[in-house]
């Protein structure tokens, strides 16, 4: 009961919610065999390649692994900033 009251009066997520959120991340890492560190490296490399061709705001780029059913997907949302100058 004290546990229940704790939850009612605090903003702390329930242990069930914590378990689900942790599992969502762990399953994506397990299924893709990508560690969070490797995913960060992938994002950095991707940004570097993209910026060779287009002007981008690195802060605005979103790269995420998502899952739908048992399928994983890498989704990149890359806003292109400003009028582009032809590079060559």
């Amino acid at each position: 009961m004290s546990n229940f009251l704790d939850q009612l009066f605090s903003r702390k997520p329930s242990s069930a919610t914590q378990a689900k959120e942790r599992l969502q991340l762990v399953l994506i890492n397990d299924r893709t065999a990508l560690t969070p560190k490797a995913l960060d490296n992938l994002k950095d490399d991707l940004l570097e390649v993209l910026s060779r061709y287009i002007e981008i705001d690195a802060e605005a780029v979103q790269i995420d692994l998502t899952r739908k059913g048992r399928e994983q997907r890498l989704i990149a949302n890359v806003p292109i900033s400003g009028p582009q100058q032809r590079q060559y």
Binding site: N3, F4, Q7, S14, S15, A16, T17, A19, K20, L23, Q24, L27, R67, G69, R70
Partner: peptide, 19 residues
């Protein structure tokens, strides 16, 4: 425990495993 939100619900397990 599911009602007290201290156990993952069956619905969430099915959502996670997707079978």
């Amino acid at each position: 425990m599911v009602q007290q939100k201290n156990m993952i619900s069956a619905e969430d397990v099915v959502d996670l495993l997707a079978i």
